[in-house]
Design a protein around this nucleic acid. Structure first.
Lengths: 235, 235
DNA sequence: TCTTATATATCTTATATAAGAGTTATTAAT
DNA sequence: ATTAATAACTCTTATATAAGATATATAAGA
């Protein structure tokens, strides 16, 4: 038998998937939800506790519980773990290198769990800090979920892709898995990042997931780690 | 005013620091602790909830709550995030390269929060997988906290250092911070890892903490990421 | 040997009260 | 009459306790 609070959690998640409550907005109060779902406030609380621990919801005492977003000032670039050696929170600029539609490779269609050879949007961009290139991103997303996306939109919104996904396509990325390696810059990445060939780069391969663990973005980031590092916390 | 469950949490932590309950052992039941601390079982529960979320305690329904350890089969190499490309959980071998006592540098004494120029133990080792070198570790720990540690002990215990810290010195590492970069192998690391000079390596600089966020180990790991990757989960 | 009982642990839910945050109404001073 | 301070009210989440459910292990009984 499934615990009651798990059921409540699923119902709340379902409402979030439906878009019943939008990112940044407050969801109904614990007591209201308790009435709707016909359980006690504490049971709703336990469900929200978990969603909050997963950063899907955000609690604010005395105010309410809010739908997490990639839009807020303080949690912008939520998935970016790169930090400057000097500990600064710095602003990055965005430079689109290429943008195209293509057929998914076999591997990619498996990763994104889409039909083989269905259309995907593929783009490259360079993130710069202080005019200097820092990250080369290759991003691949299923065209079906991002109809109407143009190169102009990416250039225009200088912020994170995730912010755009959310605002313009109703796609909320909740979590991501990354595989990190050290590689040498090849000709292309070296020229785009303005470093010598064979410079060591941090290769960060990321798959991002929306609700119900549905993968919706594959991304490869190549980072120069001379003045920056990727931070990781273990426990 | 501090919440009651926070006080309880601190009392439990204090008992753990004192070594009242050893790693792997069960702590008293929630009801027992509730009696001792003169609070309700639910309050103890909330305290344990948090300690359990921090991987300091481990719950087992119907059995009890246990002190987390680096000793158990399944959570061995708890802090090792390196995975083979083929997803195998593999066994690593351990090869000591050097072992010495030296004076702490200024930087290191700050990192470990010890008196400048106090004695530290410094060691290098190579972790191999399938006879092939995979990681070169440089480890520095304050001698004071690890009196009696010899090279032989490290060679003998083939397992993780953390296991030895725990068993032989009563030092339990709870969490760690890592800074990850891509570098090129220099002469020394290249020869120890049996790769060409300038091979790209993943540089993982780690500081490990015991109770109350006390740093007790600095470590630099250089990893070959041809057939392995460092995994990271974001949310 | 298999089943049932029992003891004891955590887990789940429910209820009640506290505390934080904002709004509105009241009061006092100017 | 206007303004500013403050008190009261109402919403929220946070905390505390208690009781019943469920899981696990062991011992007793058929």
């Amino acid at each position: 038998m499934q615990p009651l609070y798990e059921k409540v959690k699923k119902k709340i998640t379902a409402s979030l998937v439906q878009g019943e409550w939008s990112p940044g907005e407050a969801i109904p109060s614990e007591t209201e939800l308790a009435n709707v779902y016909e359980v006690s406030q504490g049971t709703v609380r336990k469900a929200i506790d978990e969603l909050s621990a997963e950063s899907i919801l955000i609690r604010r005492q005395g105010k309410g519980t809010y739908v997490a977003t990639h839009n807020e000032e303080n949690i912008q670039l939520r998935f970016l773990r790169l930090t400057s050696n000097f500990g600064l929170k710095e602003k990055l600029d965005n430079q689109l290198v290429s943008f195209s539609k293509e057929k998914a490779t076999n591997k990619l269609s498996k990763v994104l769990n889409i039909n083989p050879a269905s259309t995907i949007i593929s783009l490259k961009r360079v993130l710069t800090f202080n005019e200097k290139p820092l990250i080369l991103d290759v991003i691949k997303i299923p065209a079906q979920s991002f109809r109407g996306l143009t190169a102009e939109m990416i250039v225009e919104k200088k912020g994170s892709m995730y912010r755009m996904y959310e605002t313009d396509f109703g796609v909320r990325m909740l979590r991501a898995d990354e595989k990190i390696r050290a590689i040498n810059a090849n000709f292309e990445s070296a020229s785009l990042l303005n470093v010598k060939e064979n410079t060591p780069l941090l290769s960060v391969e990321r798959i991002s997931y929306t609700y119900e663990n549905k993968p919706l973005e594959w991304r490869l980031g190549l980072c120069i780690t001379d003045n920056h590092y990727y931070r990781s916390e273990l426990d």
